[in-house]
Design a protein around this nucleic acid. Structure first.
Lengths: 219, 219
DNA sequence: TTTAACATAAGGGTTTTTCCCTATAATGAA
DNA sequence: TTCATTATAGGGAAAAACCCTTATGTTAAA
């Protein structure tokens, strides 16, 4: 008889968490062994419980899912990480894949989607929500020399990050230039370089990215 | 012997909440009788515990402090509400005062500030963090025919709200115009009217306002 | 050491935004 | 009915942002 897959559930929304827990525990081959309501707790519980798989919401207080993933991936290379999100943006997906998640499930998908994802990922494969597979395939088929997909080199520099953050906060290029003591032209350059790297097209993408990063919470 | 002031503490940050709890419980004339980590729970606990005073963080998951205040003010006109925040913006303050809070304390202030605030508010007076009193006085002394301070009539219309929200999300005027099927000129008009009403000067103000409104969380 | 990436900066040209007015039709309150 | 507000939209000028290209000194990697 096989062992049940031990699942740690990190999700800040209590009702959602309860729902997933019941769903998972209703399966014969998996069980929720721990819960966390924020990224920091997720890390602590992972160290304590060493689960087989972590189901994690991307947007959580304390430490968002992306950052938590980055930390955990280093420390626990064998643990599977499945991210839950509401965003269908491919920029997110790319970031998460780079950070080393094993799967990506949309909150708005059917509950069976998550269960399937857990089984797939446990079996050692990657899983992308069926709603998004076409995007992944599109990206694969499309640009053969696109900006991303190089070797994972599409990291934004610190300066670029700083500029993006300020843009998300609504500062104008001029204000950013003053604040960082740069010329407006330089700010523009950082901005467009960062946007190119992250495959962003407009300010909305920057705002969404910022939210994902947890930048727009408190100062 | 007087009764202790019964305090309900709503703050999503666990460490902060613990700190405040210890501080309050260390006072002879007050005690924490309940805690909540989000706005929804704050409302539920208020109904359950009927505290004398609610100390509430403005930015909380589920239901932000401003909205929670609006709900609670209707239901419990006698309960005192003290808001905790990190923002020194006077736009926030105005909104909260309109929503009916009794006091406004900055997180970055000394712990004694909060204790003083609790005592002041319990005594039936209003309290504004000493860091901000000059702003309040300034507003009082200044513009005698300013846009706000009318009779509380500075409400933004729904259309204006819609436009503000989209701006905070990073949409350009043009994109908003397309999306709402308006001319760019109309969008501009709504935007500037709303900004005038809310006393905003730049896009940063819009973003901060949006965060306060809880607009920029998920989708 | 050559190469690559980064931070910095600027020029030129196009598009967008912003600011300040004006204007009209609809609605609702005084 | 008059007055205020709202939603709508245009004109025109100035400012800001955007796009594309080029360039230099620095640092880190091959």
């Amino acid at each position: 008889m096989q062992e049940r897959t031990r699942v740690l559930l990190a999700e800040d929304h209590n009702t959602v968490r309860e729902g997933i827990k019941m769903l998972v525990n209703a399966q014969p081959d998996m069980q929720v062994v721990g819960e966390a309501a924020d990224g920091q707790t997720a890390i602590a519980k992972t160290r304590e419980l060493l689960p087989d798989l972590l189901v994690m919401d991307i947007s959580m207080p304390e430490l968002n899912g992306l950052k938590a993933t980055e930390k955990l991936r280093m420390e626990f290379p064998n643990m599977k990480i499945l991210t839950l999100t509401r965003h269908t943006d491919d920029g997110y997906l790319q970031q998460l894949i780079r950070a080393g998640v094993n799967g990506y499930v949309l909150k708005q998908s059917a509950p069976t989607e998550l269960i399937t994802a857990i089984r797939t990922v446990t079996a050692g494969k990657s899983y992308v929500d069926s709603e998004l597979t076409h995007k992944v395939l599109g990206a694969f088929a499309g640009r053969t020399a696109g900006p991303l997909r190089g070797e994972g080199k599409a990291e934004v520099s610190e300066r670029e990050n700083e500029v993006l953050r300020l843009i998300a906060w609504g500062y104008s290029n001029k204000e950013i230039a003053t604040r960082l003591e740069l010329s407006v032209k330089t700010v523009e350059a950082h901005k467009s370089n960062a946007m190119r790297k992250l495959n962003m097209r407009s300010r909305i993408d920057i705002v969404r990215f910022a939210i994902l990063q947890g930048w727009l919470e408190e100062e």
